[in-house]
Computed example of a mutant assay.
Amino acid sequence: MLSVENLRAAYGESQVLFGVSLDVNEGEVVTLLGRNGMGKTTTVNTVFGLLKPRDGRVSVDGIDLTGAEPHRVAEAGLGLVPEGRQIFPTLTVTENLIATARARGPGPAKWTLERIFDLFPRLKERRRNMGNQLSGGEQQMLAIGRALMTNPKLVVLDEATEGLAPLIRQDIWSCLSRLKDEGEAILVIDKNVDALTRLADRHVVLERGNVVWTGSTPDFLATPEIKERFLQV
């Protein structure tokens, strides 16, 4: 579904990615792991056209989207839950959800307002509240719901639970587990490695803009030195 091949990117003269490659298949959950500053968000930004690559290739279902504008990447079926949530603060919850909503294909949309409210009952309770009146956890739920309302082929979450209270984190992990059970393809970044290994099928580890390890969850759990060497502060 998503294929990233030998991706290289830089901010000005400072190169950050040195040939990142990863794939996400239909219905698969893949993590992008690494300490802060290792290139995870830069990889996401480059995939979504927010940063133009120096080299490499990004494709979705075989369609070349390398360096494409963000709206084209969204039209191809990628939905982003960005770091920092970035919801619309002066729109209500409902307005945030319908602002970017779209259906794909001739049939009915898989994700509708009603389904989002079923997934996140708290958002239904706060549906008339403005975005800036929500807690951090509610804003993250709203950001996930907004991405799902584009009915994407793949949902990408950058720092899925960063800065959230423990109970809210559990709500987010439960949501992602439900999405996986429903066959959603997910690429997720987060620092909670234990939760990620319970959720994900495969893992990609970055170190200074390079992929240093990739493998399945059983392989990851059987190789504790990967966590000790590349993920612990």
Rank of each mutant, 00 (worst) to 15 (best):
L176G: 01
L199Q: 04
N129Y: 14
T214N: 11
E207K: 14
V204G: 00
A143H: 01
H203L: 06
A143M: 01
D201Q: 11
E228Q: 15
N192E: 11
P152I: 04
V211M: 00
Q170L: 12
V156I: 11
R229F: 04
D181I: 01
L231H: 10
N192G: 04
F230E: 03
L164I: 09
E159N: 12
P224N: 13
E225D: 13
M130C: 06
G145F: 03
P166E: 06
L196C: 02
I189S: 09
I189A: 14
G131E: 09
V156F: 02
K180Y: 06
L142F: 09
S135G: 12
R178A: 07
W173L: 04
V188F: 03
L157Q: 00
G145E: 04
R208G: 01
P218T: 11
E162Q: 12
V193N: 06
G183Y: 14
A222W: 07
R128A: 12
V233M: 02
V233L: 13
R178M: 03
R208L: 12
R128I: 00
R127W: 08
T223K: 14
L206Q: 06
L221C: 10
K124Y: 13
A200K: 01
W173R: 05
D158H: 04
Q170I: 11
R198G: 09
A222P: 10
F220K: 05
R127H: 09
N192T: 05
R202Q: 13
I168Y: 06
D219Y: 09
Q232N: 12
W213K: 06
R202F: 11
D181L: 11
K191Y: 01
G215R: 10
N151L: 11
G136K: 09
V156H: 00
A165H: 06
I186G: 08
D194I: 14
A147F: 10
I186M: 07
A222V: 07
I168Q: 05
S174N: 15
A195Q: 15
E125R: 11
G209K: 00
T150Q: 08
R208M: 08
L176H: 03
T150L: 08
L167D: 02
L176Q: 02
M149W: 06
M149G: 03
T197A: 14
N129R: 07
D201L: 01
L167I: 00
N192D: 15
L206T: 08
S216I: 07
L134H: 06
Q139N: 05
D171F: 02
R128M: 10
L148I: 13
T150I: 10
L206S: 01
V233C: 02
E125W: 06
I168P: 03
L154M: 04
S177I: 01
M141P: 10
L142A: 11
T214M: 14
I186R: 01
E182V: 07
D158K: 02
K153Y: 01
S174A: 12
R178I: 02
L148A: 13
V204T: 13
W213L: 06
L123F: 13
G209R: 05
E125N: 07
L221R: 15
E225S: 15
V193E: 08
L221Q: 14
S216E: 05
V212G: 02
V233N: 14
W173K: 00
G183M: 11
I172L: 09
R146L: 00
L142P: 00
E207S: 11
G137P: 12
D158Y: 03
I144M: 04
D201P: 06
I144C: 12
I168E: 00
